[in-house]
């Protein structure tokens, strides 16, 4: 049970500082989550902290590649508009 970071990550480090398990580490081209350490914050917080602070839609995904912050959920910009502008993230890995 672990979360993953996708290629739309902008390396802002916000998740690194709030992860209770110190599971997130710097890598290229973007930060990664250590499978062995991630608990999805179960027992620590009501919601996974990386996903609670991440500003980028679709950057944090679950095991099946499902985005915790789907398109439009953070910026309020409708997915259709994002798609039109070619700004829509792929979603999965």
């Amino acid at each position: 049970m672990t979360l993953q970071i996708t290629e739309v990550c902008v390396n802002c480090w916000a998740c690194v500082d709030v992860c209770p398990n110190e599971a997130i580490y710097a890598d290229r081209p973007h930060l990664l989550i250590d499978d062995a350490k991630c608990t999805e914050c179960l027992g620590d917080h009501a919601e996974p902290q990386c996903a609670a602070i991440c500003p980028i839609e679709c950057a944090i995904v679950g095991e099946l590649g499902d985005p915790l912050n789907p398109p439009g959920s953070l910026t309020g910009i409708p997915p259709a508009t994002l798609a039109e502008l070619g700004l829509l993230a792929a979603g999965g890995r």
């Binding site: 390396n11 480090w13 602070i53 500003p55």
Partner: peptide, 29 residues
């Protein structure tokens, strides 16, 4: 200081452009 704890509607955290001169844009962290 790359992390932020709020979102403002005038900010796009994804934007990165050497020709940009807006607040918040940087080339090298």
């Amino acid at each position: 200081a790359p992390a932020c704890n709020i979102q403002c509607h005038y900010c796009n955290r994804k934007y990165d452009c050497a020709n940009e001169s807006r607040p918040g844009v940087v080339s090298e962290l």
